[in-house]
């Protein structure tokens, strides 16, 4: 078991009302796998991912990476957020070098940064500052920065959610290429069904209230996958049917909330 999510529960207590965010979440992710966590908003998928990153704690249960329990954030898990989170006072190259500073010489770090900027096709932008780049380019720098520290897992929290449709499609192609090239294990959180089918080997579907896994669907289709492929459309239908109930639940909840307030 490479990455083992073992009986994870998470509760938030809000003015004495206990709110179950995640209930008994279990999953095993194998090395080199591209796994999507798919679910409607509020299902706790991002919370789960930040637990793998070590940024938040579970109420009970544990997550193990190669047998070691995760307690804190660490360089063995690279994270890409919805916003690129580049540091504006550093240029692109310095941003990619940020995690490398302590473990190698400046020259080595520079070389490494260049290599990964090349991988995301931004080798000419090393001297630029983040505010000079488009959203898609910033996100590519963020991916290069996460990969440059050579993590065991790449965690991505709706990384393309803030991008426009065309840019997102291009990023999908690039991410797939990077994944083939680096053989990284990727855990990818999204609420887009088509995105998860396009990219992943496996889709973990989460339901809401409480957040829990409702299906684990392997995607055995050849890459690159096209959106108009017959199998893709079938799978998309199957998953949307699964999620429909969950989304209905959210709507009902929201209506009830509106009626009571």
């Amino acid at each position: 078991m490479f990455l083992h999510i073992d009986h994870i529960n998470k509760q938030f207590t809000n003015s004495n009302v206990v709110n179950d965010v995640l209930v008994d979440v279990n999953a095993v992710i194998n090395e080199g796998e591209f796994v999507s966590i798919l679910g409607p908003s509020g299902c706790g998928k991002s919370t789960l991912l930040s637990m793998v990153a070590g940024l938040s704690e579970a109420s009970s249960g544990q997550i193990k990476l190669e047998g070691k329990t995760i307690k804190k954030p660490g360089k063995d898990r690279g994270m890409v957020f919805q916003q690129a989170a580049l540091f504006p006072w550093l240029n692109v190259e310095e941003n990619v070098m940020f995690p490398l500073k302590k473990e190698m010489s400046k020259k080595e770090a520079k070389e490494r940064a260049r290599k990964f900027l090349q991988m995301v096709q931004l080798s000419h932008y090393g001297g630029h500052y983040p505010h000079e780049l488009s959203g898609g380019m910033q996100q590519r720098v963020a991916i290069a920065r996460a990969l440059a520290m050579n993590p065991k897992v790449l965690l991505m929290d709706e990384p393309f959610g803030a991008l426009d449709e065309q840019t997102r499609a291009r990023m999908h192609t690039e991410l797939e290429k990077i994944w083939v090239e680096t053989q990284k294990t990727i855990l990818f959180v999204t609420h887009s069904i088509s995105e998860s089918i396009k990219l992943s080997d496996r889709i973990i579907v989460m339901g809401t209230q409480p957040g829990t896994i409702i299906a684990d669907i392997p995607v055995n289709l050849q890459r690159p996958r096209q959106f108009d492929q017959k199998e893709v459309i079938q799978l998309e239908k199957k998953i949307s049917l699964l999620l429909k109930n969950e989304i209905d639940k959210v709507v009902k909840e929201e209506l009830a909330y509106a009626a009571n307030h």
């Binding site: 930040s50 990153a53 070590g54 940024l55 954030p73 660490g74 360089k75 898990r77 690279g78 994270m79 957020f81 916003q83 989170a85 540091f87 006072w89 940020f98 995690p99 500073k101 302590k102 920065r145 996460a146 520290m149 965690l155």
Partner: peptide
């Protein structure tokens, strides 16, 4: 977000302050 991002890159304590919080 800057702090969380820096933490996932192994930065904490004084290092986090000097390289992220202060420049920010």
């Amino acid at each position: 977000l800057y702090i969380r991002a820096a933490q996932t890159m192994g930065s904490r304590g004084i290092d986090l302050f000097v390289r992220v919080i202060f420049p920010a």
